[in-house]
Design a protein around this nucleic acid. Structure first.
Length: 152
DNA sequence: GCCAACGTTGGC
DNA sequence: GCCAACGTTGGC
């Protein structure tokens, strides 16, 4: 079982938005980066867990844990010309973009901020903390996953 | 708002 | 295939 991290801008979709969603579920659409797509489509399996990370906000950091409740399927927003994430180069017969469905497992008692994560040598190797990383979907090592949960 | 660090695009 | 220009991400 692999572990993951999913970034979302709370101004667009926060962990509280997920908490309020029907059955606390949402389809994770709009990923338009190939490596992130590959992690979702080829890596993520139903039942695995991911950190819900708030990015581009006052307090970037890990806000909660979600469970992948459905493996990747083609992202319908890529086919919708009126959608912000429309991609004219993607077609239904051979979709380029995929999304997964997640369910909120739990919100953390506090946000584990990026600043705090950086202070732990044990986490220095995390892809999230790697210089210049901008991927919105990332793997998290098993040791790092456990370590971070123990920080709460 | 700034800017570093990318990924993508497109001319050649 | 190279690489400059451009767009985006995301911390600060």
């Amino acid at each position: 079982m692999s572990h993951w991290l999913l970034k979302s801008e709370p101004g667009v979709f926060s962990i509280d938005d997920l908490a309020r969603a029907a059955r606390k579920r949402t389809f994770w659409d709009g990923v338009r980066n190939y490596q992130a797509r590959n992690y979702m489509r080829d890596g993520m399996r139903r039942g695995e867990q991911a950190f819900f990370y708030h990015s581009s906000c006052a307090q970037p950091g890990i806000a909660g844990v979600v469970e992948i409740v459905a493996a990747a399927v083609p992202d319908p927003t890529a086919f919708d010309p009126n959608h912000r994430h429309y991609d004219p180069n993607s077609d239904r017969a051979k979709p380029t973009w995929y999304g997964i469905e997640v369910r909120l497992k739990n919100k953390l008692a506090r946000v584990i901020t990026l600043e705090e994560l950086k202070q732990h040598d044990a986490l220095a190797g995390m892809p999230l903390l790697r210089r210049g990383n901008r991927l919105s979907v990332l793997p998290v090592g098993e040791d790092e996953w456990d370590y971070i949960l123990a920080l709460v």
